[in-house]
Computed example of a mutant assay.
Amino acid sequence: MFGKRPASWRNHAWETDHVQTSLLVDADGDLVRPWITWFIDTATKAITGTAVTPGHPSRAPVRAALRAAVVREEPYGPAGGVPETVRMDRGKDFLPAAVTTALDAMGVTVNDLPAYSPHPKEVVESLNRAADRMLFAALPGYTTGPRSERQGRTAGAVSALSFQDFTAEVLAWTNWWNTAAHRPKTLSGRRAVRRWRRGRPIRLLSPTSPPPTCGPTPSRTRAGPGS
């Protein structure tokens, strides 16, 4: 058991991580399992920046996701800004000079965490699990769980999304996540998938909040906006 962090405020602390998707995607004729790099605000649980790559991530998607998180003008924002602290693991792709120099220039404190210790960045780890159960499980080519066992890997691969369409789905889900008031706590498994595919968040932030989008968006395809 681990202690609970004290309440904080918007942009007080962010967490960042990579997650490899549990579905097969068609990237220029090759079936790959893409990676997502994202930043999340631990106080508001808003995803501030996202980048999607077909191969193993490097410092480039980290910088792309960081730029999407910091810049708040269109097509980015409104979530994001400049955090006080960023919690990340000690992977070589998170701590190269290109990334640490940019964070130092903004006055951001980097809290590099021990390897193989997910509990110090529990918010982004929860986001990874929610994405798997709510987004990846609803898409063709999913390779985990009973549905994939019935279909088989080959059957799931035949209907795999293109990498561009998958990126659009990730951005649409990110928009929905940032619109819903808080997402995975009361949803799990099949019910979570049904709610997402039908476009019904748990509740909206305000009566004037726009409804979530469940289809592909015409915005960026490689590094997405923060909301």
Rank of each mutant, 00 (worst) to 15 (best):
M1S: 14
G3L: 08
G3C: 04
S8E: 14
W9Q: 11
H12Y: 15
W14Q: 07
D17M: 09
D17W: 08
D17Y: 07
S22K: 10
L23E: 04
D26I: 05
G29K: 09
G29A: 10
V32C: 10
I36R: 05
F39G: 01
F39T: 01
I40H: 02
I47A: 11
G49L: 10
T50L: 15
T50F: 02
T50P: 00
T53E: 11
P54A: 13
P57Y: 02
P57A: 06
R63F: 01
A64H: 05
A68S: 15
A68N: 05
A68G: 08
V71F: 02
V71G: 00
R72T: 14
R72S: 00
R72I: 01
E74K: 08
E74W: 09
E74D: 04
P75T: 05
A79T: 07
G80I: 10
G81F: 04
P83M: 02
E84A: 10
T85H: 03
R87H: 11
R87K: 09
F94T: 00
F94N: 09
P96A: 02
T100A: 05
D104A: 14
A105H: 12
A105G: 13
A105F: 00
G107W: 08
G107T: 09
V108D: 02
V108N: 03
N111W: 07
D112H: 00
Y116P: 00
S117A: 15
S117L: 08
P118Y: 08
P118M: 07
H119T: 11
E122P: 07
S126K: 09
N128D: 05
R129K: 13
A130G: 11
A130V: 07
A131V: 13
R133Y: 11
R133F: 03
M134S: 07
A138D: 02
L139S: 00
P140F: 01
P140V: 01
G141V: 11
G141D: 10
Y142G: 05
Y142H: 15
G145D: 00
R147G: 03
Q151G: 01
T154D: 12
G156W: 09
G156Q: 15
V158N: 06
S162D: 13
F163Q: 10
Q164S: 14
Q164G: 13
D165G: 08
T167A: 15
W173P: 07
N175F: 13
W177A: 06
N178Q: 07
N178E: 02
T179L: 13
H182S: 11
T186Q: 12
L187T: 06
S188T: 14
S188N: 08
S188P: 00
R191Q: 09
R191S: 09
V193M: 03
V193L: 03
R195M: 07
W196H: 02
R197M: 12
G199P: 10
P201M: 02
I202L: 13
S206I: 00
P207L: 12
S209F: 01
P210W: 00
G215R: 13
P218Q: 08
R220S: 13
R222W: 13
A223E: 06
G226C: 05
S227Q: 09
